[in-house]
Design a binder for these strands. Sequence first.
DNA 1: GCCTAGCTACCTTCCAGTAGGTAGGTGGTC
DNA 2: GACCACCTACCTACTGGAAGGTAGCTAGGC
Lengths: 194, 194
Amino acid sequence: MSNASSTADDILACARSLIIAGGYNGFSYADIADVVGIRKPSIHHHFASKVDLVRTLVARYREEAQAGLAALERNVADPAEQLKSYIAYWEACIKDATAPFCVCALLASELPILPEEVALEVRAHFRSVSSWLASVMERGRRQGRLHLSGTARTEAEGFLATVHGAMLSARAYGDPKIFGTITRPLLDRLSTRH
Amino acid sequence: MSNASSTADDILACARSLIIAGGYNGFSYADIADVVGIRKPSIHHHFASKVDLVRTLVARYREEAQAGLAALERNVADPAEQLKSYIAYWEACIKDATAPFCVCALLASELPILPEEVALEVRAHFRSVSSWLASVMERGRRQGRLHLSGTARTEAEGFLATVHGAMLSARAYGDPKIFGTITRPLLDRLSTRH
DNA sequence: GCCTAGCTACCTTCCAGTAGGTAGGTGGTC
DNA sequence: GACCACCTACCTACTGGAAGGTAGCTAGGC
């Protein structure tokens, strides 16, 4: 194992950024081949089909996301600070434009035409992020660190939706700052010291 | 004029629902031809190119949206009720599944790979809806009918983002009810009688 | 006689995917 | 250590089909 065959990783990384730009039908094997510096059919050596490639890509994205949230749980004690860090992460992604959109949020918008195997992964991502958010909300309320208007679940869904919408607005306006403009009041409203 | 040539309208309507399902690259002329009951090249008689078709489609969508908002201004006096009606409109769209997503919100997610002519229309839609929302927020505050935490502009952007995110969540969970679950607290928070 | 709204037939380009080959490396066995 | 079997990671050449689009025809209406 170790840092073995980086080509497969390069293909995944390239496909990820192409999906972030234009979704499942927004890129081709030829696009990847050009960037990675490999011939088109060689991609099939690493991933049997496009569905296989994207399913793997989303599965890995989900692993990274889970790992990121787990790290947040370990390193940040306060629920309010956890939400702030989550927002700050995306704010940084959008600002430096490396990955200015959640892969699963983008794919979710195309769900009706997505291959079922990919769709399953995308739906699972929404469930796991929203249930993490709900657990943060619940803990924040118990500890008196977050002020919830409704149930933890409702607050979590509203939070996630606003973050996704803020990504979309940042893209639509071509202005990274709008993400912060939208999410800051969201955090303010939840934090107890208002 | 009058109810002339419905074929062009049929093509636009069909393309619209296909775009709502999977975005700009999620449909082809062949798909439209199948549904409309026409041969593929006949579409070119009505729309010179795919870009032309989609640009026309989005322009018409924008006109309808503007007309809808104007009707809301005419028929509903109270700003809080205007927001409620706006939400109710989308809730109905999502529930009966005829057009469960905003055309421009979906296209906005693919902005980086959209033809420039289409991208311009999409960006314009965001600006006009958000400026309408801002004017409703401002009026609501002046009339003491809406309780804003920040500026009218900020509230409008947050409102729009949450609505878009709620559409996405409804799609991701395959559950129309989640749209209401997310947007109801949004309205409650803004309405003065909380 | 011209316009409208279709049609068939065709073009080029691109798409994901396949077939079959090669160069270089690894491990096993006599 | 020579030979062999097998593997990985690519390659070239190609296929069938779908993409958007073009050329040129025809039937019917004002």
